[in-house]
Design a protein around this nucleic acid. Sequence first.
DNA 1: AACATCCACAACCGCATCCGA
DNA 2: CTCGGATGCGGTTGTGGATGT
Length: 309
Amino acid sequence: MRRSSLSMEEESNLKKGPWTPEEDKKLIDHIQEHGHGSWRALPKLAGLNRCGKSCRLRWTNYLRPDIKRGQFSQEEEQIIINLHSILGNKWSAIAQSLPGRTDNEIKNLWNTHLKKKLLQMGIDPVTHRPRTDLNLLANLPHFLANFTNLLANTNNIPPWAGESSLLRPVDPIHLAKLQLLNNIFQVLSSPFPNMETLGPNFREQQHLYDYINGSQMSSSHLAGFSGQEEGLSNLEAFLQPSLVGDYQEIKDSKVGNDEEMGGYNCDIPVLPPLISDEQCPNSSSTSFEGWGELMDDQGTDTYWRQIIE
DNA sequence: AACATCCACAACCGCATCCGA
DNA sequence: CTCGGATGCGGTTGTGGATGT
């Protein structure tokens, strides 16, 4: 069934591809004088050899006078990430919160910049949770345990370290990155304890666990993501040292009580923080921004591989 | 300098939804 | 209620410029 009222011949004669300045002018002049009315009828009335759809797209995505041009601000990017975590790929809905920006522009920004940015931070851009597809994490506990020993005696570079650029020199940025891996791994490798045993903060703590573990949506998660602000606060809870500390406390308190913990077994050595809170970059900004900036100049999988191997 | 590759962005395509007859 | 045209939406592609080899 043909949905178009144009004949095959008419359709095939229509121009496609980039718009010329002359075409733009015809379209702008016509809409300013008559409004767009029916997009289907517009091309003929405006003297354009284009389909109505092409005209509508050109107008809404490029020629509209209220379109904001230029780079997206940090704030705009943050809004997009935040709304995407709630709305998903609903570009037009996201665009409504950013006056002057089009859905197409936001979609392009997401696909070219923001998606990569989140991946660099170890966050899955679809679920907005930490990535769990890093098979490379398999060797992490031993690596971190060794590294912790190394830090305890910084003059004693072990033979296995070889010429690794990661270990020499040992600078605060490298330590901070290791801290990130350390935090992710500890939560990934531990089941979440029974809710009744957790006390008043259990919900926040489960957020952290769910978030980092990438498990299916729990009821607390649904509640947590019900609004834009709460969604952000979850994001900020990610890697907040105090919350990780809380979680660690709970986990430690349960060591040796395997049955109650659903078979929890602390095979993995519990690692002390590799760096203190004060050493974390940009301690005045949110955790999210701080880690984002920290990871900003790095590749994705290649970068993680380099850390772990 | 020439060529290959990457990247960003505009534009297209096809499906979904809306809405009036 | 059903049908079909108009419009909206999101995924994908094409293209030109930038960068690397």
